[in-house]
Design a protein around this nucleic acid. Structure first.
Lengths: 252, 252
DNA sequence: AACCCAGGTTGACATGCATCAAGGGTAAAT
DNA sequence: ATTTACCCTTGATGCATGTCAACCTGGGTT
């Protein structure tokens, strides 16, 4: 159990109140005492490693998970190894929300790189939420935000072409990383081309070709997982309902 | 204000406790007294008619809406009249959940046929939820369910072909209608082919051709908006990750 | 150092569905 | 009853992107 380099426990035992993610995470607008109460139910485990699962499809739902460092992908495994990637989750983002309804996980969550994850036992959380109105409100907002995000993805998959999809993906990564103080134009992708393609509803080859094309056009510089965005403005305009040259999108 | 035929007010003034939808809607597992409290904040307006809006994108968020009879579509209007249909909402289903986060509606909701709608002022609802644990739980589940449903749509749009999409649409309609006691195999669609196509990420023509093909294959009988499902089993198998003849789906 | 192998790239080709175009049926408006 | 307008259907064509195949590349292993 200890064969891997153990990362200093200090980096794990940071409480909610000191957490730099607290504004992204749940404790928005809570009193210090209430943050302590929330803190007391949150479990912090040792770091997880690439390939580890937070949970698997079909398992009983017990906890929500918050990414503290690293990244996680969620996906629905279908028969015969096929899968649909539902999302990539960066620090401050919450995983497992879709399982509350059925009390059972419909998707699996796999760690993409060494990551620290907070676990929030849901039953205790619900009790807490009932007694802390601002926590209940945060949770409603969080769930709602997820629904809004899904709606954006529906639009992406339903109406956008390959170019727009990849541009939107890059913009999303850029925005989410910069929100936590990292460079919006220089970052490493923790997921493979395969996973990106799956997520965006594209073949791996299409993703690869688009990266190459964006690079040829001077929009990005790509070296394996390392992405430098050279012209964020143009990529943003591609990601919107930008009229891709010569391709009026259907208005169905 | 009274130029249209007024539908008997009795049909509108039904309280939550008598509502046949109460098991689909919010008051799952609430005590009679608590249902009364919920009932007291719910507003029931006169019936709305085809084309009326519950709310429009950009408007301040104030209330959730529950379809009591009829049907509603939600969609994100984009520049130049293009739009993405996000969903069709049948009796018992709740609309506006995505607006909680931003406190502002990101999509519009338009009534597809004469419909009765319950309005639930959200602020008062939240106060109530904080004092009724089972109501808070119902709400968490409801939001979660919506997220789970969106994930299914992501899979549909990301991985399924046209045939599978339309089959899935028919199965979904069938299941939702039968859940409220209507025929699972004989119903009227309240939305146009255009709207179905938009929702499924397909061109109108494709939807039309598929209806024709399903009919030729003896799976359904279609006459304009009237659909009779003749072979639900086969349609269900098409809707799943059925291997459409001669088209191994990519496993990206 | 040589090997291995998963992940990535690139090219050639195939195809599902969008697009374009035209015509017919149905329901509301005059 | 006639007109109008929309919705739906059907056929012909083109294109974006999936599929197949080959090769490259870098990181890890023996």
């Amino acid at each position: 159990m200890t064969q891997r380099k153990v990362i200093s426990f200090e980096t794990i035992r940071v409480a909610c109140k000191n957490c730099t993610l607290s504004q992204l995470c749940l404790p928005m607008g809570m009193s210090p005492e209430d943050v302590d109460r929330l803190d007391s139910i949150v479990k912090r485990s040792r770091p997880l490693h690439r390939g580890d699962h937070l949970f698997r499809s079909g398992e009983r739902f017990r906890s929500l998970y918050v990414v503290k460092t690293g990244s996680v992908k969620t996906y629905t495994p279908s028969e015969e190894g096929g899968e649909q990637v539902l999302g990539f989750h960066l620090p401050g983002e919450i995983i497992g929300l879709d399982a509350i309804d059925q009390d059972c996980h419909a998707c699996s969550a796999k760690v993409l790189e060494t990551s620290a994850i907070c676990e929030v036992p849901f039953q205790r959380f619900e009790e807490l939420a009932a007694s802390i109105p601002s926590l209940q409100h945060s949770m409603f907002r969080l769930l709602s935000k997820e629904i809004g995000h899904d709606a954006e993805m529906l639009l992406l998959l339903g109406k956008k072409n390959a170019e727009e999809r990849l541009a939107a993906f890059l913009v999303s990564m850029s925005q989410r990383l910069s929100k936590r103080g990292l460079s919006p134009t220089d970052f490493y992708l923790s997921m493979s081309r395969h996973e990106i393609g799956n997520y965006l509803g594209l073949a791996v080859e299409t993703v690869s070709r688009l990266f190459t094309r964006f690079q040829d056009e001077g929009l990005v510089k790509v070296d394996r997982k390392h992405v430098e965005i050279l012209d964020l403005g143009t990529i943003e305009s591609l990601a919107g309902t930008a009229q891709a040259a010569g391709s009026r999108k259907h208005s169905n």
